[in-house]
């Protein structure tokens, strides 16, 4: 479960921000901001992805690095918000 969610999120990061360049895929714990993968405006695409692909609603107060700042944090956030999370396909 964790692996499925994490791999789907990683897939989005690589295709949406790195245009398919797997060689620069981040470590799960790596800060997406600090590595320059996501800029301050690019975070909105991430929020849209979570809302559409995992049928989540992300509140303003939840748009913080603890939840969205790394692939590991994102995975944890998705699983916490819907424990039996299935990607909305």
């Amino acid at each position: 479960m964790v692996e499925q969610v994490q791999s789907r999120i990683m897939g989005f990061i690589v295709s949406n921000y790195l245009f398919g360049d797997e060689s620069r895929a981040p470590e799960p714990d790596e800060s997406l901001l600090e590595s320059g993968i996501v800029d301050s405006t690019g975070i909105l695409e991430l929020i849209q992805f979570l809302e559409s692909d995992f049928a989540l609603e992300v509140k303003d107060s939840e748009t913080v690095p603890d939840n969205l700042g790394s692939v590991a944090n994102l995975t944890r956030f998705v699983l916490e918000r819907s424990p039996d999370a299935e990607p909305a396909s």
């Binding site: 901001l33 600090e34 800029d39 301050s40 975070i43 909105l44 929020i47 303003d60 748009t63 913080v64 690095p65 969205l68 700042g69």
Partner: peptide
């Protein structure tokens, strides 16, 4: 604005 992320703005400008 809803959906904007002030915490990330701070994160970005604070790098």
């Amino acid at each position: 604005a809803p959906g904007q992320a002030p915490a990330f703005a701070r994160g970005f400008f604070g790098l």
